[in-house]
Amino acid sequence: MTVGILGTKLGMTQIFDEAGKAVPITVVQAGPCPITQIKTPATDGYTAIQVAFGEVREKTLSRPERGHLSKHSQTPPMRHLREYRLDDTSPYQLGQAITVDIFSPGQLVDVRGTSIGRGFAGYQKRHNFKRGPMAHGSKNHRLPGSTGAGTTPGRVFPGKRMAGRMGNATVTIRKLQVVRVDSERNLILIKGALPGKPGALVSITPAKVVGHK
């Protein structure tokens, strides 16, 4: 795996490329993310680095969280922690900041975040079911219809598409293109839509490109 960066989704807009075509983009305020822990096979059984994002007041963190971050005195109190597994952690040091400079325009990235919660949704909204006849005699306007067999097996199989909670799930959008990187303002402009509302936390990593055999 490779190192990524944490950021906050600011919102969507559009820019124009060299040909004058409008490109829909999402603006992400990413990093800088200081490295708060380096994991090795000797201490943790695997190799990874842990990064932090979102500076907050110290009293908003619990005592164990403050103690964990205080191992490196230069790291201010941070709200979010995320680790990225690596094959080799030797190029990284505690306190080193991961910035948007690890990405370049035209690069493909994977963006992971939490989708917008829609609450308890019905069959049509959640699974695109068709509605029933709307005539007065029909009593099946938005009902799901049959959900299972009768005597045998006498239950509804797990995984049946039914009403329930919609959204608020971890989603990864793969192979999005980086349009522009602003190192001075720590901004990444990514083509397309990202999961979550403006202000949501997202994790951006280089896309896994599988070569053709």
Rank of each mutant, 00 (worst) to 15 (best):
V181H: 06
A149V: 11
M1E: 13
C33L: 05
R174I: 10
G192R: 04
H127P: 04
P34H: 01
F16M: 13
L10K: 14
A19W: 09
G164S: 07
T40C: 02
A163E: 07
A193F: 09
F16D: 04
G192C: 05
Q14G: 13
K59Y: 13
M134S: 15
G199L: 08
G117M: 02
P158E: 07
E83Y: 11
R118C: 08
G145R: 05
K71Q: 14
Q14N: 15
A200N: 09
G122C: 02
V202Q: 08
T47C: 08
G167S: 06
S203N: 12
E65K: 12
G117K: 00
V156I: 15
P144T: 05
I35N: 00
P24Q: 03
M78W: 02
S183L: 13
V56T: 08
K208W: 07
D88Y: 02
A97D: 14
V210P: 07
D182G: 03
V56K: 03
G67F: 01
K9E: 05
G148R: 06
A163H: 09
N128Y: 13
A200D: 11
T60E: 14
S70V: 00
H136D: 11
I190H: 00
P195K: 02
C33A: 08
R57S: 15
G154D: 06
G54C: 07
G167K: 03
G54D: 01
N140G: 11
P76R: 04
L187E: 03
D88S: 07
